[in-house]
Structures are given as structure tokens and as C-alpha cells.
């Protein structure tokens, strides 16, 4: 499981480098996010452009991360594939998250890739 971390002027962008965010990796994702330092007042944009498959365990982990970050570090979602968008719509979680069509463009030099085994 790998995520890429990028700090921009007004947001932290977390890109999930995984095609499937499912039950097998959901807990790892949540743990990685728990260890990610985000300052109060900074919004966090989760870039899902690489994620082609999300199940309810993966969705639950995203909800859990939103709760971990709390209201002072709002979690937003970006770049949903059709299957992922459908899951958000069926569960009506698209009414909870701010969803962007695209992730902000970032400078690759300013990114850190974080990995966890599994």
C-alpha cells in the first residue's frame, strides 16, 4: 500500500497509489493516514484517480479518516472513477464529502511517497 503526500499552499493532497481500496488494505490505509501530520486549518484532498475499485470497507476507512482529521482539517475527495462514484452515490456519501472532478495539479518534486507492507 502506497500513498503520495503533497503539501500545497492551502491544502494537503494525498494520492492513493492503489487500484483497489478494499477490505484487504482498508485498515492499512487508515493507519497510514493516522500517521500523517496535517496542521489544523488545512484541508485534505484525497486524490482517488488511481483507484478503480472501492468497496464498503474502503469507504468506511475514508469516513474513518474524515473523523480522525476532524472539522478543522476537512477531508475532500477528488477524481472518482465511474465505479467509485457509483458507490458514493448508492451510499449517499456523496452528500457528506465535497467532491472535485479533478485533483489539483501538484509539483512532483514536493511530494513524499509513503509505503506500508501488504
Amino acid at each position: 500500500m502506497q500513498i503520495r503526500y503533497c503539501q500545497t499552499e492551502d491544502a494537503v493532497i494525498i494520492k492513493i497509489l492503489e487500484a483497489r481500496l478494499d477490505a484487504a488494505v482498508a485498515i492499512m490505509f487508515k493507519e497510514m493516514m493516522r500517521d500523517t501530520v496535517v496542521e489544523d486549518g488545512t484541508r485534505v484532498i484525497l486524490d482517488l484517480s488511481q483507484v478503480q475499485f472501492l468497496d464498503s470497507s474502503g469507504l468506511g476507512a475514508i469516513v474513518g479518516v474524515m473523523k480522525l482529521l476532524g472539522p478543522t482539517r476537512p477531508l475532500e475527495i477528488a477524481a472518482l472513477s465511474p465505479a467509485v462514484r457509483k458507490l458514493f452515490r448508492l451510499t449517499r456519501m456523496d452528500t457528506v464529502f465535497r467532491i472535485h472532478d479533478h485533483a489539483p495539479v501538484t509539483n512532483e518534486i514536493d511530494t513524499d511517497t509513503l509505503s506500508i507492507a501488504g
Binding site: S56, G60, V63, G64, M93, V96
Partner: peptide, 9 residues
Amino acid sequence: PDDLAEGGY
């Protein structure tokens, strides 16, 4: 959705 449940879907 407003329950922000992490499971049960």
C-alpha cells in the same frame, strides 16, 4: 449518510 458510519453498508 449523516451517521458517518464506518461499516454496515
